[in-house]
């Protein structure tokens, strides 16, 4: 799936982190020395910190699309579970699709934040090895999508807005998933989300993997964290098909125009949410705060709209994506 420890040198999309980490380590060491000894290192530490700040900003401003894909998959990057913990005042998880099972790759529940209540739906990847396996690395089965829709219908009835967090490499390609109608579960979700009579906000917080992402992604407002990606196919999959080689993933990532800035330019998302310097994994709290502020702002905006207007705008928004030439 997304993290494999033994990547080839060329595939290692996080090599750019190494000098930054080395610098950080040096600063940490000097700090330790500074405390225990009579050496006067404060000046040097400050200089190094300044250098790190500058270098981080420079490196992150110039990341290639493939490097951003790797930041989006970074092991320390905040997951839906981190947002639940750091952002919400209260969370009541609701399980199960009422038909087949409880897919742990998608979490749903009642959420409260800054006095606002909503339904939270999000892909769940898991932190520990055990969790990751239980969550199938964020690759949902049909019952996950059906659970999401069942809860979203309930939210509609209770007049609660819906917030979805997208972070999946893609919906799971397996035998059981096909038997139980993976395609139909996703299609049904996409269709019914156009019919939900409450505001919907979607935020891509890491990986926006194709139909598996869009299956909970039809929002009145769609935001993307700066270093997340959203794509019709994984760079690896695209490279295997069009370049006939999985090694060409960096080229495919470039060609697919999958970064947040690309999606904004193409009019496919409404907003890029800036991450703290050096990515969300360097400052989880900072990232979560920014997402929280954006959600609260959008909720206020959307709740002022009459329902008919809300649904009309939702349709118009997706209807306008990708306009062909007249001939």
């Amino acid at each position: 799936m997304s993290e494999s420890p033994a990547k080839s040198a060329m595939q290692d999309g996080l090599a750019f982190e190494r000098p930054l980490n080395e610098l950080q380590n040096r600063i940490d060491e000097l700090r330790k020395l500074n405390v225990g000894s009579h050496l006067e290192l404060t000046g040097e530490i400050e200089a190094l910190e300044e250098r790190l700040k500058k270098q981080t900003a420079e490196v992150y401003a110039q990341l290639s699309p493939w490097e951003r894909v790797n930041v989006a998959r970074h092991a320390e990057r905040p997951l839906t579970s981190d947002y639940i913990q750091l952002m919400l005042d209260d969370f009541v998880e609701l399980h199960g699709d009422r038909v087949f099972g409880d897919d742990r790759a998608i979490v749903t529940g009642l959420a409260s934040m800054g006095g606002v209540r909503f339904l939270l739906v999000g892909h769940r990847k898991g932190k520990t090895v055990k969790d990751r396996l239980a969550c199938n690395f964020g690759c949902a089965h049909p019952e996950g999508y059906r659970k999401a829709m069942q809860k979203m219908r309930m939210a509609e009835k209770w007049k609660l807005p819906i917030v979805t967090f997208i972070n999946t490499p893609g919906a799971y390609p397996g035998i059981g998933a096909e038997e139980r109608g993976q395609a139909s579960a996703i299609a049904r979700n996409i269709l019914e989300m156009f019919d939900l009579k409450v505001p919907i906000i979607s935020v891509v917080i890491g990986e926006g993997g194709s139909g598996g992402a869009l299956g909970i992604g039809v929002g009145d407002r769609v935001g993307m964290l700066e270093n997340s990606y959203y794509s019709v196919i994984s760079p690896e999959g695209c490279a295997a098909i069009l370049w006939k080689s999985g090694d060409k993933a960096p080229e495919a990532a470039e060609a697919l125009k999958l970064t947040s800035k690309d999606l904004l330019r193409l009019g496919l998302v409404d907003k890029v949410i800036d991450e703290p310097a050096g990515g969300a994994h360097r400052d989880q709290k900072g990232a979560v705060e920014r997402v929280k502020a954006q959600i609260l702002g959008w909720l206020q905006e959307l709740q002022a709209l009459p329902t008919a207007e809300l649904l009309e705008q939702r349709y118009r928004k997706f209807r306008g994506m990708g306009q062909p030439l007249p001939g």
Partner: peptide, 12 residues
């Protein structure tokens, strides 16, 4: 694939 996420959004 040649239309990237634009093609994805045709599903919506």
């Amino acid at each position: 694939m040649h239309e990237g996420a634009v093609s994805l959004m045709q599903m919506a």
